[in-house]
Design a protein around this nucleic acid. Structure first.
Lengths: 88, 88
DNA sequence: TTGACGCGTAAGAAAAGTCTTACCTATACT
DNA sequence: AGTATAGGTAAGACTTTTCTTACGCGTCAA
């Protein structure tokens, strides 16, 4: 669903067309994404188009990214250790 | 749990000590993370220490990050559109 | 204003996830 | 060998998620 929204804003029916599940099911998924702030809703007549909210996705990315410091820290510690070892 | 492993490799019991849930429950969580490749297992005697696998976390981050191109693309399209508008 | 369309929500069934206890194996200590 | 420790796995209870169908409300078009 996020992939679909990556291409363009889409209505519920359009999205549902790409899945096997029923329209209400898609609606419920979108509700979750909306509550999570990952998508926003635009009303156009009787349609509702959903759109990605990149800022929110960024915060998810950042949350995961923070675990990657791990290797850097570990590598630095190793380097320090080796530097000390050379002196002694 | 990932936060705990961010600090250092840890045994199951050590991890379980930080939670209210039972050790088997923690074991099951670790199994999931292991299957997902987010952590690795090192055996030390009768202990099993778990360690973050940053490469895998990176791929999660990248997966999310790719949705952020959205704004850039959209902005570029807008700029092109405006540029064209100025000429005409 | 009547019918069709787009969509949300409610209720309940079905499926998946997440615990706990009980039990088993492997390593370590004496 | 005998006992303690670390931890995985199985079975089952309980919770949560994720569907589906049925229905209601607003918008559009005749």
């Amino acid at each position: 669903m996020l992939d679909l929204l990556l291409e363009a804003d889409r209505s519920v029916n359009t999205i549902a067309g790409h899945f096997q599940m029923s329209r209400p099911a898609v609606s419920q998924h979108l509700r979750i994404l909306l509550d999570a702030g990952l998508v926003s809703e635009q009303r156009h007549g009787r349609e509702r188009r959903y759109r990605l909210v990149p800022a929110r996705l960024r915060s998810v990315r950042d949350w995961v990214a923070h675990y990657e410091q791990f290797w850097d820290d570990r590598f630095q510690r190793l380097q320090k250790h080796l530097a000390k070892g050379n002196k002694e």
